[in-house]
Design a protein around this nucleic acid. Sequence first.
DNA 1: AATGAATGAGAATTCATTCAT
DNA 2: TATGAATGAATTCTCATTCAT
Lengths: 223, 223, 223, 223
Amino acid sequence: MTVNRSSEGRRRRVPRKEREQQIIDVAVRVFAKRGYHAASVDEIAELAGISKPMVYLYLDSKEGLFLACLSREADRLVAAFQGAARAGGAAPELRLHAGLSAFFAFVAEHRDSWVVLHRQASELSETIAAAVADARRAVMAQVAGLVWDGITESGGGSPPAQLSHEDADFVAHALVGAADSLTDWMGSHPDQSPEGVTLRLMNMVWVGMGRVLEGEVWVPARE
Amino acid sequence: MTVNRSSEGRRRRVPRKEREQQIIDVAVRVFAKRGYHAASVDEIAELAGISKPMVYLYLDSKEGLFLACLSREADRLVAAFQGAARAGGAAPELRLHAGLSAFFAFVAEHRDSWVVLHRQASELSETIAAAVADARRAVMAQVAGLVWDGITESGGGSPPAQLSHEDADFVAHALVGAADSLTDWMGSHPDQSPEGVTLRLMNMVWVGMGRVLEGEVWVPARE
Amino acid sequence: MTVNRSSEGRRRRVPRKEREQQIIDVAVRVFAKRGYHAASVDEIAELAGISKPMVYLYLDSKEGLFLACLSREADRLVAAFQGAARAGGAAPELRLHAGLSAFFAFVAEHRDSWVVLHRQASELSETIAAAVADARRAVMAQVAGLVWDGITESGGGSPPAQLSHEDADFVAHALVGAADSLTDWMGSHPDQSPEGVTLRLMNMVWVGMGRVLEGEVWVPARE
Amino acid sequence: MTVNRSSEGRRRRVPRKEREQQIIDVAVRVFAKRGYHAASVDEIAELAGISKPMVYLYLDSKEGLFLACLSREADRLVAAFQGAARAGGAAPELRLHAGLSAFFAFVAEHRDSWVVLHRQASELSETIAAAVADARRAVMAQVAGLVWDGITESGGGSPPAQLSHEDADFVAHALVGAADSLTDWMGSHPDQSPEGVTLRLMNMVWVGMGRVLEGEVWVPARE
DNA sequence: AATGAATGAGAATTCATTCAT
DNA sequence: TATGAATGAATTCTCATTCAT
């Protein structure tokens, strides 16, 4: 009688869904490490402990595999945001801070996910380029939403006339770009916590460098 | 009588230095469009209107070709900065603005250069990865220098005690990341001039979103 | 009903070990015919009736392929020697004769093997040159062993004082070189059997040309 | 007035014959070191201090260049033999010894020449293979001539009935092969002089191993 | 559910060779 | 006499993908 040896006692028969996730797990790592083109299906299959035909059976093609990675990681990022949104306070800049913080934590902790989502060079096929653009747009939309809420609800009631959705989008791009770049900065400053970095970024953006120079500092107020 | 057919009278003999630049010109375009790995030397040679062996004769290898692109574009960016530095005014935030503006104009106008310098994915060989890291560090150092000057000379005399080189580096990363990301934003907002984007970013960073919401806007003062 | 078309019913699926041997078989022929550098993996693959990627999948590289040939053929030669050693008689010069004879037969009959083992020019990479040198040393050691036994056990009991391992090695080199060269000679004297050539060489070396001129001839004594 | 700076004061105009020899000198070294195929015309031109087109102008092609090397080195070897022949004594085995000695000295001292003449693998084009075969035949003929004289004049008058030209050729092949192989042996025994090696080989062949074992040694008699 | 065997298509790189001056 | 510029044709090697079991 064949015992189901769960701990690698000769490769088990694994249900499709589970295998798929295993493959995607590995693929995200490999795509992040090597980039789309330099990543090889061979390596992914080997690290996943299965044969190449399985990869093709389940994910169709290298492109399909990458798309699967992309959409799963995008979902994860959105989920991280939504968690933060629920946890955020009432004051809009607190919500912005909470969202930014969640975003930062994600980017810092799930390097591979973020690299797959955001750092793929332009080297991609039409289909993939479109999907990447979509994923990026989704992320941007989340951040822009956060910013928009912060802006419109901030001034007490009436949103400042000169600020628009376009501004929110602008700010979102700036924030996401800054956050991405600060990921590198964190790489050379391992003592800095994501939370600390978030706070610094928040100060820089919300309070402004000019004010910071005059000693003004923003700290999330306890509600 | 043999006319000197300067305009493509069937492939001319071109002196080495000139050809090298032609090749690098094309290579920057192709590397930017496809990314290092997906770019093929074949394509580069063809677009440059020469045969592959010439590329290898002059630039040694795909890696050598990429390194040549990298260093030439890095030089260009540094030159743009230095032009701005000379043209900048006395007040430090004016200099920051001038530098940022130059940077922005470069990133916006030389998309390919910037992509080659900054958007190469993780997929690179040891040698290349090191060169890319170097180039990025050089850019960061320029921006950080700008910021540092802005910070230290700003407060009237005594630099704020709590601000350090680390802060300047932090801000530089945030700015470069934001600028990079805003390049994408500009792609979907073709009506926005680099100068306008710079101003907006400057406001966001220098004055702070909080202040902006209250109607405060920074404008480069005429000296 | 699908018949098992064993005789080329359009390229069969062949187990790895078998294919490897097929490839090596062909490669030995091609390397012998063309030399290491002039041999092309393309040609080897084509003659083996498979595609190039299989060659690389199984043997890793042209170098790997050559090394595989080298070691297989070296093993074969050693085996031929050992067969002869077991079959050889008691008297040492009989054993020398038997060994030499086996060697000769091998060199004459397995031209390709011998060429791969011994006739590769100086044009080889470090790794390969080392492997070739090793293989040659192994062959030499076999012959030198044969000679040493012949020498020491010959004189009735006490080995001649002035003869040493160095002498045996010297003689081995002379014999192997002579045998190699005589392979060419046999090419232009197809009527000569390897056995006859061995005998002649044995006479030349053992009895000496001077004696031969005086009519003395050595014939392997029946035990 | 342009002085003819013989010591490399900016590449001189050199008459054709001289340049040809320079090129061939270098080519022999390179062909010997790398083998025909692995040798590159580029390397040869560079080491010769001229441009590739000169090589083609003077020697026509890589093949032509190799053929030139081959024939020049063959001539040199033949010349070495003829010198020895004139210097040899009256007794036939003395002449054999003198010839063998000259041969050996040549092989030992002009490694590159010998390698080009004898160690080119089978990797060659029809034309070249033929030329190499010719060169080898010429060498063999010299040695065989030496041997034939030694044999026929040795016995006092009447040549031993059973010995023939074929025998001489056989012995020549054995000797040349042995000599070639002993070149390797000398590589690992740098203390051994070519003259000593010649003597040993002469003993082995002329007196015979069997006799040597009994203490008999042949020494060239002073006439 | 799973895989060992197999390949077409392209990648980087090198080489012998020629042209224009 | 001499050369810098240029290339067609290989060559080694890799990769995404499929077939037969």
